[in-house]
Amino acid sequence: MVKPTGITNRIRVLRFERAEMTQADLAERIGVTRQTVIAIEKGRYSPSLETAFRIARVFAVPLEQVFQYSDEEGTAP
């Protein structure tokens, strides 16, 4: 059973706002595979803090605008 995560993200929206940046583009810029970007976007994988900050840097926004954490642990907001 996969542990539920309380982390959600706005990567899809942020990519859309950056002229539809592709998942491959983002993957290359943060140094992961395209499949990992897909997994992160869908909430199937929580990246390390290092990768999370790299994603925020690509979009030039604070970390909280990329990732959010729900008030109750383990439940999606």
């Binding site: 140094g31 992961v32 595979t33 395209r34 990992t36 997994a39 994988y45 990246p47 390390s48 990768t51």
Partner: peptide, 10 residues
């Protein structure tokens, strides 16, 4: 293009 690509998740 993806040959032997391995990241943190892998």
């Amino acid at each position: 293009g993806e040959a032997d690509a391995k990241d943190q998740r892998d």
